[in-house]
Amino acid sequence: MRFRNIVVLMMAVLALASCSALKKNSGKPDSDNASATIIGKKWQLIEIGGKAVSGQVNGRVPFLKLEEKSYSANGGCNGIGGELTFSTNGKIKFAQGMSTMMACPDMSIEQALSKALITADNYSLSNGILSLNKTKMAPLAKFKLMEEKQNLSGTWELDYISGPRIAFEGLYPNRKPTITFNIQDGKINGNSSCNNYNATFKTNDHQISFGPIMSTKMACEGNGEATFFSTLEKINTYDINENTLTFIMGDIAMMRFQRK
């Protein structure tokens, strides 16, 4: 009888432990391990402030990309980026970061996305939809996973460069710089707006580095060529969105090219 009572007691303890475990795991969305699921992928913005977002804004696909400690985004105009912190229970914090300073016809989506990122304090992932939320209120923004085609091959033409005080058109009044990637040989060549040049390059995921740049020696007017070469040497990351190639230094978008 004594042994039977001990067995019954042990079974009761195990049952209570199982119920406790079930309670701990019940009611949680499939975003418990979402940080590993959502990192390193590009998410297309499909809803902001409860309103649907079109597939393209100013000719670009609005998106958000999350890394372990940083993020990058585009609301259809400027590149946005900054530090990112993940915490337990789906908590997330976007720090105000750097942005390019272009003006576009429709800035409303970009402004709304920037505000949503800074406001959000948690995220959830359900049925393939990533939501950024503030406490338990309605989602601030929703995203769907988009396939990235990170294909550097081909020729790209510069249409934005960060840093110089001279306007882009003044820096390159006659010819825009180009860059052509030969993926198989690991080489680039192009024109700086004045001289032809070539160099080697290496990539690792989204990281990129360039070898010494060699160019022809024709005399050039202005600072366009020098600005192009000096900026290219600082680049350590790249991103491709549709037909737009962005070169990044840290979390700052430094150069932008369009596929030719």
Results as ranks from 00 to 15, higher is better:
15 A>Q: 07
18 S>F: 04
23 K>H: 12
24 K>F: 14
24 K>N: 15
26 S>F: 05
27 G>R: 04
34 A>K: 05
39 I>V: 14
41 K>H: 08
42 K>V: 10
45 L>F: 01
47 E>S: 14
48 I>D: 02
50 G>E: 07
50 G>M: 06
52 A>M: 08
54 S>N: 15
62 P>L: 03
64 L>D: 00
66 L>Q: 01
72 S>V: 10
74 N>K: 06
76 G>H: 08
78 N>A: 03
81 G>L: 00
83 E>W: 08
92 I>V: 08
93 K>F: 09
96 Q>V: 07
96 Q>I: 04
97 G>D: 01
99 S>P: 00
99 S>I: 01
101 M>S: 14
101 M>L: 14
104 C>Y: 04
104 C>I: 02
107 M>P: 02
107 M>D: 04
111 Q>P: 07
111 Q>T: 13
117 L>F: 05
118 I>Q: 06
119 T>Y: 06
123 Y>F: 15
127 N>R: 10
127 N>S: 15
130 L>E: 02
136 K>C: 09
137 M>F: 15
141 A>F: 10
144 K>R: 12
145 L>H: 15
145 L>Y: 13
146 M>V: 14
146 M>N: 15
147 E>P: 13
150 Q>W: 09
153 S>N: 08
156 W>I: 06
160 Y>T: 03
165 R>E: 07
166 I>P: 07
172 Y>A: 02
180 T>Q: 04
186 G>K: 08
188 I>R: 03
189 N>F: 14
189 N>L: 14
191 N>T: 04
192 S>N: 14
192 S>C: 13
199 A>V: 06
203 T>K: 12
204 N>Y: 06
204 N>S: 06
205 D>L: 11
205 D>C: 07
206 H>T: 15
208 I>C: 07
208 I>Q: 02
209 S>M: 10
211 G>P: 10
213 I>C: 04
220 C>K: 05
225 E>P: 01
235 I>N: 03
236 N>I: 09
242 E>M: 13
247 F>Y: 11
252 I>T: 12
